[in-house]
């Protein structure tokens, strides 16, 4: 299948510890080694990329944006008008990328985000996508039978609720602004952001219930 299959002996020779690694791991290591030996990348920089996505960029950024929108009407309006601009101060290093659009759930409209062609996702505000977002089942079905898909997430919407599915086919990225849960009057931004789940910002979930949380 691959060039590697014909060169297993070379691999074993070059990587004495390689016997514990899978074929996939060996192939990844081969590319890393070549990038470093050819002078394309500093090894420390490779590790720093992984660390950034593991520890610095994640749904906590989006959760704070949502909690701010719930508590600050002017910010909510700014977010819905130009999300890239409004969200920027919340991003890693105080910046987010261009082309972010926030879509608001209302009493009669529910929004869901997908990328049917690959797995485009608002990395700057939510981090890397969960496995289900990249799954073939989600990508193929949510544009056609979103209610059935939402049921699999445990989300049941009233029959009359309009569902808007946003298929990210270019470089525009979407985040959902979910509705603020009832029973959270007077809560602070810090309390509220704990209710904002990742899935609620993609439209496959609702914010957590205030009972037993926050206050």
């Amino acid at each position: 299948m691959t060039a590697h299959d014909h060169h297993d002996h070379d691999h074993d020779h070059h990587h004495d510890e390689a016997s514990d690694l899978s074929e996939t791991e060996l192939r990844v290591r081969a590319l890393q080694t070549i990038l470093i030996e050819k002078g394309y990348a500093d090894p420390a920089a490779l590790d720093a990329i992984v660390e950034t996505y593991e520890t610095k960029i994640g749904p906590h950024i989006g959760a704070r944006i949502v909690a701010r929108a719930w508590t600050d009407p002017a910010f909510r309006q700014a977010l819905l008008t130009d999300a890239s601009k409004a969200a920027a101060p919340f991003g890693h290093q105080g910046e987010t990328g261009d082309h972010l659009v926030a879509v608001e759930n209302t009493a009669d409209r529910h929004n869901v985000v997908v990328c049917t062609l690959c797995s485009c996702y608002p990395w700057d505000v939510l981090g890397l996508p969960p496995v289900w977002y990249k799954s073939f089942a989600y990508r193929s079905r949510v544009v056609k039978e979103p209610r059935a898909v939402l049921t699999e997430f445990g989300v049941a919407l009233p029959d009359q609720t309009q569902i808007h599915v946003w298929d990210s086919t270019a470089e525009v990225r979407y985040m959902v602004l979910p509705a603020r849960p009832p029973g959270t009057e007077g809560w602070t931004e810090e309390q509220l952001m704990k209710l904002v789940t990742r899935d609620s910002m993609i439209g496959t979930g609702m914010p957590a219930s205030p009972e037993g949380a926050g206050a």
């Binding site: 997908v114 049917t116 062609l117 496995v131 289900w132 799954s135 073939f136 089942a137 989600y138 990508r139 193929s140 079905r141 544009v143 056609k144 898909v149 699999e152 997430f153 445990g154 298929d167 899935d199 496959t204």
Partner: peptide, 12 residues
């Protein structure tokens, strides 16, 4: 793959 059938249910 938008609109295709056959990939099963979503593991959420």
């Amino acid at each position: 793959m938008g609109g295709m059938d056959g990939f099963g249910s979503v593991d959420p």
